[in-house]
Each structure stands twice: as C-alpha cells, then as structure tokens.
Write a protein that binds this DNA or RNA. Structure first.
Length: 99
DNA sequence: CGTAGGGCCCTAC
DNA sequence: CGTAGGGCCCTAC
C-alpha cells in the first residue's frame, strides 16, 4: 500500500462529529513534519464521497483548505455537529479525534 | 538516475 | 494577530 492509500485508510477512523489535523494524520502514518504532504494528498483525494478529508483541519483550529471551497467544508462540518465561529472550531480539544 | 518546485501546513517569534 | 522559515513527499523534468 502506498502512502496515499495508507493516509486515506487511516482517515476513515475519524468518525462523524470529530476532526483531526494535518499534523496528527501525518504522525499517524509515520511522517515527521509531513503536514504539507497530507494537505497535498487531501487535495488529490479521488474518493471525496468516501474519504472524509473535510474532517482534517489546521492545528490552530482554523478550517484549512478544501478542494471544492472552504465554505463547503465549513458546511459539511456544521452538518456533522461541529460548531464553527469566525472561521475557527469551537471546543477544538473536545472534537479532536485521537488515533 | 538527480533535482527543483510546490502543496488544503506547523511552530515560534 | 501576522509572518518567516522549515521540512516531507511526490511529480515532472
């Protein structure tokens, strides 16, 4: 399994209503300082309906980017029960999934 | 083969 | 708050 497949598979562990960060996901697949690699892989996500890349956000609590637009990412997260105020996730620590 | 460049970032100031 | 620099992996020369 190549890196991308491992990343997509690992991300499936993150349930609806929770989020992870680019850095955490990088660590989860054994990458050090691989945040940007994760971002790139998310951008190339060929299975947007299956792999929940909208649940990957920035460690600062901001939403981060999204191939189809940040407002869509924001809406998807809201629909899953994640509250977002002024572009930042409320109760970030409580929503953060631990691999 | 080697390497430059870039990406949905992170940390420290 | 903003910004600079870093660091990793892939892709295209």
């Amino acid at each position: 399994m190549n890196l991308e497949q491992r990343v997509y598979k690992k991300l499936l562990d993150v349930p609806k209503g929770q989020i992870t960060t680019y850095g955490e996901l990088a660590k989860a697949v054994g990458l050090k300082n691989g945040q940007r690699v994760i971002g790139k892989i998310m951008n190339n996500n060929p299975y947007p309906a299956i792999v929940p890349c909208h649940r990957v956000v920035m460690s600062t609590g901001k939403i981060g980017g999204y191939a189809y637009g940040e407002h869509i990412k924001t809406k998807m997260l809201s629909d899953e029960g994640i509250e977002i105020k002024n572009g930042k996730i409320s109760s970030f620590d409580k929503k953060l999934f631990r691999f």
